[in-house]
Amino acid sequence: MENQTESVVWGIHSQDDSLFLDKSIIGIGWTKMGDLSKIGSTRENFKEKVQEVYPDIKKGAIPNWAGIMYRFVVEMKKGDYIVFPSKADRKINLGIIESDYMYDELAPLYPNIRKVKWLKHYPRRTFSQGALYEVGSLMTLFTIKNYANEYLGSLDKKFSPKMVENTEDETVGVTAEDIMNNTRDYMLKEISRQFKGYDLENFVASLLNAMGYRTTVSPHGGDSGIDIIAYKDELPPRIAVQVKSQDGDIKETTIQSLKGAMMPGDYGLFVSLSDYTKSAKKFLKANPIIRGINGIELVNLVLKYYEGLDEIYQRAIPLKKVYIPVAKGEDKV
């Protein structure tokens, strides 16, 4: 196909596969909003209307909801392409938008609609894992950018689904890493948001317990410079742990305070949600009895020992164990 990169390709999700496919439409909900074409032509118009109609909505959801409606009504155009992954038959459905925005006040679920001409219906295995990952966005309506040409290429008359079945998918490794990175970002953000000060100390203690250590959290308000005492077993060495939830990178002087609080024979562990300055890293390298863990390393440990965390922390950071594909030759754990 010519000028593929100039074509706009949208992705959409639905709770009603048959409605979209049998009636050749796509749609979005928000029945309380009424006719979206009467709201205005700017994102701010939509934000204001969302806040008016849904006064109890969380503040962070306002731009998300308004953005979806704005894209569907204003940005989407006749002639744009649509990719719709149907759940019932596990297929990727590709079509072209044939109408402007329309409002159906009698529709129970999707009153905001556009007509679509469905062009192709492919099994999911037709496309690379990266393309499937992009169309698996958590959003209701979104633009497909990275793999737009792959989807548009499948509409070419010369395209054959068999051409990708016997080739190794080079996007698998990238996709798996994208999923893991998104998970790490989510976890670090939630840990930073929910656990500050003493709460983070208790969280780290729970993680150390899951790793097989016995821990004692220091009394609140103490100035010893040690937040947690940990032992691997009944015998020394003792591990003195300091925990910091600050946003800025940890300085060398802060780690020196931990070393000053340590007793002869102790090992030290410094846990930070951020990272360490260059001088702090140099200090840690010169003092191997103290281990520094930054935010990403902490998240990796949480992922590894998640099932051993106290239930209160599993509820605070809910994760579901799933299997994702990795490139051949890479670690599978």
Rank of each mutant, 00 (worst) to 15 (best):
G212W: 03
A210R: 00
N182V: 08
A176Y: 08
E165L: 11
R184D: 03
L188F: 01
H220D: 04
D178K: 14
R193N: 12
N181Y: 13
G212S: 06
V164H: 15
D223E: 08
A176K: 04
N202R: 13
I179A: 11
F195C: 04
F159M: 01
S192W: 07
T171L: 08
H220P: 02
D185F: 12
Q194R: 15
Q194W: 06
D223M: 03
M211S: 03
T175E: 00
S160G: 10
T183K: 14
A210G: 01
Y186H: 05
A176R: 08
F195P: 02
P161V: 07
N209D: 14
T183A: 14
Y213I: 03
I191H: 12
D185I: 11
E165G: 06
K189F: 04
M211W: 05
R193Q: 13
D178M: 12
I191S: 11
T215K: 03
Y213K: 03
V174N: 03
V204S: 02
M211R: 09
I179Y: 10
G222N: 15
D185K: 13
Y213S: 01
A205Q: 04
E190A: 02
A205H: 05
D199A: 10
K196N: 06
S192N: 11
N166C: 03
D199P: 00
S160E: 14
P219N: 15
K189C: 00
E177Q: 11
V164C: 11
A210V: 00
M163A: 13
R193P: 01
T171W: 05
G197D: 06
V217P: 15
S218K: 13
N202F: 09
D185S: 11
E177V: 06
H220E: 08
Y213L: 04
I226V: 13
M211C: 07
G173K: 07
M180Q: 09
N181W: 11
N181M: 14
K196P: 00
R184F: 05
E177F: 07
N202E: 15
N209C: 11
N182R: 13
D169N: 08
M211G: 03
K196V: 06
I191A: 12
F203W: 00
D223G: 04
E165K: 09
T167P: 00
N181I: 11
D185Y: 10
M163I: 14
L188M: 06
I179M: 12
L200T: 05
E177W: 05
F159L: 02
F203H: 00
K162D: 12
L207P: 00
L188N: 02
V172C: 04
D169S: 07
T167K: 06
R193K: 15
V174W: 05
A205S: 13
R184S: 05
R184G: 01
R193D: 12
G222S: 15
D199H: 04
K162C: 08
E165T: 08
R214G: 00
Y213C: 02
Q194D: 08
G222F: 15
T167Q: 04
T175S: 05
S160A: 12
E190Q: 10
Q194N: 10
N166L: 05
T175K: 00
Q194M: 10
L200M: 10
R193V: 04
F203D: 00
S192G: 08
G225K: 01
N181K: 14
G221V: 07
S218D: 13
I179K: 12
A210M: 01
